[in-house]
Amino acid sequence: MFDTALTLADLGFLAKGAAMTLAVTAVSVLAGTVLGVVFGVIRNQAGPYWSMPITFLLDIFRSVPLLIQLVLGNALQSILKLGWAPFTTSCVVLSLYTAAYCTEIVRGGISAVPATTRRAARSLGMTWWQDMRYIVAPLATRVSLPAWIGLTLGVMKDSALVLWLGLIELLRASQILVTRLQEPLFILLICGAIYFIISFPIARLGGYLERRWSND
């Protein structure tokens, strides 16, 4: 019952897929977070009325399935003759998707800083930038880090969808092996275990930070 045609080389193939998953996630989360912080600060500065265009645009990324976004992104880059590789297209779409969620997190974090604290900073003679850098950033980070960790894990899981553009990441790699070896359950279990091993410890860390930092 326990004999399998899976070889060490196949496991290496899966590991390569996992590396691709991590690469797409890393690039997208990095770019998405930078964009999210920028949009979050803009939304906070401009107020709900003037930031309506940004709010609406980012809301689209949260209300349309990621699969459709990826297909649209890919179609758009070929219409505009950009000649992007699937990796680039995937990263761009996933970055915008991440940015949409990250903006909400950043905005929430900034508005969790009491207005009185910020006014105190300004009345001590700090500039807007100093207030942002030394008062708001540390306090807001503390509030939003658990949610940001959750977002990162979410993007890691959602990055499985880039297989639709032909990128060989973890899930696609295991699908290829399933097609060749015809042992779907066993290979998918390995694939799921890899996802779980990556995700579970980080999720636990997020939960720990949330408990640890929520009291005071």
Partner: peptide, 23 residues
């Protein structure tokens, strides 16, 4: 709960579609 939250939804659908075939 932990498996549902720590693996991709697409993986779960694959499991239901391809994985259960083993049984």
């Amino acid at each position: 709960v932990e498996v549902a939250r720590n693996t991709p939804a697409l993986f779960q659908i694959y499991m239901a579609h391809f994985g259960l075939g083993n049984f």
